[in-house]
Computed example of a mutant assay.
Amino acid sequence: MSPRGCLSAYSRALKPFSRAISWKPTGRPQQTLISEVSRSGTGLHSGASTTARLLPAMAGEGRYFVSGLSRSRVPAKIDHAVDSPLCTTLCGDGARVRTVEHLLSALEACGVDNCRIEIESGDEVPLLDGSAKGWVEAIEQVGLCAAENSCGHNMDKLAPELHEPMYLRRNDSFVAAFPSSKVQITYGIDFPKVPAIGCQWFSSFLDASIYLKEIASSRTFCIYEEVERMRNAGLIQGGSAENAIVCRLVIRCILNLCEAS
């Protein structure tokens, strides 16, 4: 499917849910970074050295990427997401940015509402150690301030309010959301053939301190027996033990012995 086709599919899927969500003022100003900060590393799938520069942005601009020879602006919004294997990819105006999930997670958790993200030497966000921790540390290095619009005014931060339960399922994965006065997440994963992962559950009310302590350091993992197949498909060219957890499968063999009569 072409990127345009993928965008249309995402938009159609989101339409029924848009009626279940409204945005309400929080009484707090939108925030941005005090100054520029950058991190360099290897792209997970391209294997190329790349740099992401995080810069302050004006109130109301939101979070967006600047990438490609055209330096096109790609908003970090769900309607710019396209179908891609083993990473989140955003497209817009002929440009694309891959593997954005850890960086965007850190920006949201740390309260960075507006940010210009420039990608240099490629179209992929550097993986760092395979977690969001390095991005949290980069944000904390420069700190936050109230963002101003072009008129020098602050703008109110908006928060989503869910009015009815929502549910999405794809293959054996699903996500469900329910109306609540506080943000609480419950996450489960089950890989019975991979002892290093196994069956795990995590549940907690969510704030910046919980994110930093319990979530930000969670790293990308892969199955050792699948590495060659993925690399032959042009994926994880930059993957290594330094930026991912590599786990082996446990294969149980049952041997039935039959006596000949």
Rank of each mutant, 00 (worst) to 15 (best):
V97M: 12
W135G: 03
V97A: 11
D129R: 01
G130E: 02
S150N: 09
V136A: 11
E140V: 00
T99K: 03
V97N: 06
S105P: 06
L162T: 05
L162E: 02
N154E: 15
P126S: 10
M166F: 15
A132W: 05
G111Q: 06
T99C: 10
R116V: 04
T99P: 01
D156W: 13
E140T: 03
A146D: 15
C115G: 03
E101N: 07
P160M: 14
H153A: 12
E101W: 07
A146L: 07
E124H: 01
P126Q: 09
P126E: 07
L168S: 07
I117V: 06
C110E: 02
L168H: 09
S150V: 09
W135Y: 15
N149H: 10
E108H: 14
P126M: 08
C151A: 13
R98S: 02
L162G: 01
E108N: 09
E108D: 15
N154P: 08
S150Q: 10
E137I: 07
I119R: 04
S150G: 06
V136D: 02
E137Q: 14
E118N: 02
R98D: 02
M155L: 15
V100H: 05
E164I: 11
D129E: 08
V136P: 01
H102S: 01
V97E: 07
G111Y: 09
H102D: 05
S105K: 12
S121I: 00
E101K: 08
G143L: 11
P126G: 10
D113Q: 15
G143A: 13
L107H: 04
A132V: 02
L128E: 01
Y167W: 15
G130T: 08
E120S: 10
I117R: 01
D113S: 14
M155T: 11
L127T: 04
E108P: 04
L168E: 05
R98P: 03
I139S: 04
P160C: 14
C115A: 14
P165I: 12
I117C: 00
